[in-house]
Simulated assay, not measured.
Amino acid sequence: MKKLVSLVTAIFMLAAVGCSQNAAPAPAGQTAAGDQGSQTKIDYPTKPIEIIVPYAPGGGTDAAARILANAVSKHLPNGQSMVVSNKPGGAATIGMTEVFKAKPDGYTIGMTTTGATSIQPHYGKSPYTHDSFQAVIRVLSVPQVLVVRTDAPWKTFEEWLEYVKANPDKFTYGTAGAGHTAHIAMEALNMAAGIKTKHVPFDGAGPAVTALVGGHVEGAVVQVQEAKAQIDAGKIRALVNVGSNKIESYKDVPLATEKGYDVQVDVYTGVLAPKDTPPEIVSILHDAFKKALEEPEVIEQFKKIGVEPAYAGPEEFQKDITDSFNRNGEIMKKVGLLQ
């Protein structure tokens, strides 16, 4: 009887081993449950990545791109690097057009801002529009401020508002150019507050601030980092933040919304890739940028130029771009920038 039990046990063990050996393994990139793609690996990057900045060297976008490019290179697979390439012109459309036309292989990407993708397409002169790219990551969302000289008679937003209401079209303010985000932000404040001011466009925010310090205009609307040096030097001061958020270095400057005016025009900065870039490549780029954005050294470098990280993933960043495109389009129509 014992011999019979032993024989039966041995037969069952041999059958189990045979079934195990005959079971087909799950194909590469597929789990035993049949899920496709979750384990797919690609060999990327295998050469340096070019990140196009559609502005001249030395500006805020260029500075942010270079800070991040150095840090991102430490987080890319295969020890590859990221190289910044400045391609200014056409109100940022020349550089972004090159990104738009690039092969979607992850080796040519771009650092965009609100003007390039949420304003310029409204004029119909660019081959792309706000959703012609693959969003990778938003790295900054920078508010804009109305600044005046420190010797100006207006110490507060309320004092300034009282003056411009009593003196329509007399207050002059400079921006980086007609139709740029700063111009749109101020026009939005004009509409919300029922006031009239006189716009003086310059070829960039730097010349606008210089003109303000020199007394050629009475105010300027610029991104916070563009005003930082002159504020720190005690030459100008901010009266109101016409963006949607505050940053630490401007925490005492009131938001227009806090004063009862629905004006929220920020300048986003983020990374775009050509449309149809494979999801695996987008994921690798996103993760490398996100890790760089979280580095204490990067945060400190951003702080030195007057900005703070403002992370958003691909879906949220694309929504930010689309919302900004729609909002700016409405304002541009109301103020006569669009027919």
Rank of each mutant, 00 (worst) to 15 (best):
S126H: 08
P314A: 15
I11T: 05
V53H: 00
G219F: 02
A116I: 05
Y250M: 15
G90L: 09
G204S: 01
Q80A: 03
K74R: 13
E98G: 07
I137T: 11
A166Y: 07
Q318Y: 06
K125M: 01
E158G: 12
P88I: 03
V213S: 05
V221W: 07
G110R: 06
V242L: 15
K3H: 10
S132H: 03
E158M: 10
N328G: 15
G18H: 09
E50C: 09
V5Q: 11
T172F: 00
Q144D: 07
A24D: 02
G34L: 03
G59V: 12
V200L: 06
P153W: 10
I284L: 05
L140H: 04
K170F: 04
Q30N: 10
E162P: 01
Q120I: 08
A135P: 08
T113R: 06
D169R: 12
K319W: 05
Q318K: 08
T40M: 14
W154H: 13
W154C: 01
E162I: 09
L239H: 03
T172L: 01
I299L: 06
T40A: 13
Y123D: 10
Y173G: 07
T97W: 02
G174I: 00
K87R: 13
A102K: 10
P121H: 13
A312M: 14
V335S: 00
S85W: 08
A188G: 09
N70G: 14
V242R: 04
I51H: 12
G336Q: 14
Q134N: 15
T156V: 04
T93G: 04
D131G: 05
L189D: 03
Y55M: 13
M96H: 02
E300L: 04
M191G: 09
I236E: 05
K291N: 07
P296L: 12
V224N: 12
N245C: 12
V307D: 01
L68G: 01
I195T: 07
Q134P: 00
G58W: 04
A185D: 06
H183N: 13
A24K: 07
E330L: 14
I52A: 03
Q225C: 09
V298K: 06
A56M: 11
V147N: 04
I321S: 09
Y123E: 09
Q39E: 01
G215Y: 00
S283G: 13
A310Y: 00
K333T: 08
T114Q: 11
K2M: 11
I331N: 07
E50L: 13
K235N: 13
E187N: 11
N241F: 05
Q36M: 09
G79A: 07
A182L: 10
Q264V: 08
T277G: 05
P54Y: 08
I119P: 10
F202L: 05
S38Y: 13
P143W: 08
E330D: 14
V200C: 09
D232Q: 13
P207S: 02
V217D: 00
E280D: 14
D262N: 15
N241D: 08
M186A: 12
A193M: 04
K259T: 10
I331Q: 12
A91M: 07
V53D: 01
E295H: 04
H216Q: 15
T257W: 12
A312Y: 01
I51P: 14
A178W: 10
A71D: 06
V99P: 01
N328L: 15
V213F: 00
K198F: 09
